[in-house]
Design a protein around this nucleic acid. Sequence first.
DNA 1: TGATTAGATGAAGAAACCTTCAGTTTCGGG
DNA 2: CCCGAAACTGAAGGTTTCTTCATCTAATCA
Lengths: 171, 171
Amino acid sequence: MPRRSQVPLEPRKSPVQARSAASVDAILQATIQVLLGVGKERLTTTRVALRAGVSVGTLYQYFPNKSALLQAALKRHLDEVTEAVELVCKTHRGKSLREMATALIKTFLQAKMKDAKTSVALYSVSSDVDGAKIVHQMSVRCNELIVQMLATAREPLSTDTQLVASMLQGA
Amino acid sequence: MPRRSQVPLEPRKSPVQARSAASVDAILQATIQVLLGVGKERLTTTRVALRAGVSVGTLYQYFPNKSALLQAALKRHLDEVTEAVELVCKTHRGKSLREMATALIKTFLQAKMKDAKTSVALYSVSSDVDGAKIVHQMSVRCNELIVQMLATAREPLSTDTQLVASMLQGA
DNA sequence: TGATTAGATGAAGAAACCTTCAGTTTCGGG
DNA sequence: CCCGAAACTGAAGGTTTCTTCATCTAATCA
């Protein structure tokens, strides 16, 4: 029997009360903690729920399946990085190219070094889940942001996208 | 209940007849094929046995568990690489440093490029199994070989181990 | 050729997980 | 204070996969 090839991955409920939002947060945090603690092979939904201080049922109220849970954790992490990039892009408009570049690199390294283990753990997950898609989305997003910033640079430039790509490669 | 923390990983039997050696070989090959075909997440011992043309029982006659099977596959691959390195080291004694270096790099790249997919697949496994240990062992082994070769170089040298390390990093 | 050992088989036991859902508790507005 | 909705719970169902073992077949040797 073939395993069901693709499963839903949208959240089941949107938290409306405060406590549910807290649960989602705890679950996402717990996911990374478990990932770091026992590795992805032994990460089980029950274990995550336990660590989050909720029951499995609660977990499944917000994440339709294990895969979606991992994707959500990955997405959240990347969102944080993207946010950092966004901040830098907005605060460096009208600066020189050199300034832009150094600031960007600095931000990336900071974000990655802050908790290198987490990054590695999540990266290892992204191959199992369809994490490539999520990573790609975020890289596209960052690209847009950077292009916007570059447009306001003092110097004119011809090849911007390639510069950007090389920056992203560093991550 | 905690999963049994560490399981035996030594082979169960040493093949003495020809057919058993063939079985072991088929199983090891099948392991890589399955790895390439369906990925490590869906690699099961039954599937490997099926592909190898033997029964699960036969598989378990030579590999005490799934983990040991994967480790064996990894080890075998690395042994091949090491063998290639060994050959190069022995045939390049008394040559100049430059010759040694280029030959080594060439060998490494060839070995890795020959079937890049296999390398990647096995690498992805090495994180789940305690593959790091195996990889380390083989890197130590290569180190010895290279040091031996370097000792016969035309030019004298002070820092050899570091050179070696940087070579291995490329892999 | 008969006995002994190596090798192979696959159904069945056992363990680990994912996921559901009927029932319970908590929250917030009327 | 009461009631409907939102959240939470965790035992149980159902899969999947690992691993064992009693049994059968093939090879080796005297």
